[in-house]
Design a protein around this nucleic acid. Structure first.
Length: 275
DNA sequence: AGGTTGACCTGGACGC
DNA sequence: TGCGTCCAGGTCAACC
């Protein structure tokens, strides 16, 4: 479900509520698809650790942990949460009803609980124990310079839409924001990356950053069941210009928005405004 | 090697 | 009310 702006919203919300707290105990479901690290390893790393910081790397939520009791000599670890399509990370009172498809509950020193819920089980939980910190590859779209951004696509024969979704190039852009960025840049999703001019790529760089920044400011896009750590919906879906608007008039020229399938994903564009 | 496709899952919306 | 079909914001293995 979530792309960079939604993951950032959730990570910031969770950080504000639970950073500095110690995890007293952890329960996990026994659904193997959800756990990229063995559940025992996750329980071991989390229990007794303090939550130093919750932040975002690409589409992954990273929870930096440290041991409160250094006597146990355990290495600091990072707890990684990937929300997949339908994953949710919520903070609630222990009395709150346990939702169907709950896969992890961490009891905190404050008495509240951090819970991970994921019906489709495309989300993944793991621990990262190596020094240097979690690095999935790719560059952060909000930090990358125009020059490096342009270089990412040089010589690539794949459609620009597929390249934008490739997390080893840019990390964090997903289907909605790829379509919205391409619309703002005036580039059709099916154009070969290598065939796009340097000037247009510069425009795309600005469009990607603009779209992501606007979406973060509005708390992300709520489609179906996405909500942030407070249960609040985002509002960026009201700003979508092409995503989910097949057959509706382009907001600039009134041409009907088209939908095609690229890299197995729905891709929306205006045939008149995007070349 | 780079690029594309299906599989992984559940559930909601829609048509009959 | 129910059943079948299609669709979904992500990723990865397997294939060309």
């Amino acid at each position: 479900m979530p792309e960079l702006p939604e993951v950032e919203t959730v990570a910031n919300g969770v950080h504000a509520r639970i950073h500095g707290q110690t995890i007293r105990s952890v329960w996990t479901s026994n659904k193997p698809q959800t756990f990229k690290s063995p559940p025992d390893e996750i329980i071991e790393a989390l229990t007794g650790s303090r939550i130093e910081r919750v932040h975002r790397v690409g589409k992954t939520i990273v929870v930096d942990l440290s041991r409160k009791d250094l006597s146990r000599k355990k290495k600091p670890a990072q707890f990684l949460v990937h929300l997949g399509m339908t994953g949710r990370l919520v903070i609630c009172e222990p009395a709150a009803e346990i939702a169907k498809h709950t896969h992890l509950i961490a009891k905190l020193a404050s008495g509240r609980e951090l819970r991970f819920i994921d019906p489709r089980m495309f989300g993944k939980l793991s621990v990262h124990l190596h020094p240097g910190g979690f690095d999935p590859g790719g560059v952060e779209p909000l930090e990358v310079s125009e020059e490096r951004f342009v270089a990412l696509f040089r010589g690539r024969k794949t459609p620009i839409k597929s390249a934008l979704l490739n997390q080893k190039l840019l990390r964090g852009v997903g289907n909605i924001y790829a379509d919205e960025s391409l619309f703002r840049a005036g580039i059709r999703p099916g154009r070969r990356a290598a065939a796009i001019t340097r000037e247009q790529l510069g425009k795309l760089h600005r469009a990607v950053q603009e779209v992501l920044r606007e979406a973060i400011a509005l708390g992300g896009s709520s489609i179906n069941d996405y909500v942030d750590a407070d249960g609040e919906e985002g509002f960026f879906q009201l700003q979508h210009r092409v995503y989910g608007r097949e057959g509706e008039p382009c907001l600039l020229c009134e041409t009907a928005i088209r939908r095609v399938v690229l890299a197995g994903r729905s891709s929306h564009y205006c045939a008149n405004c995007q070349k």
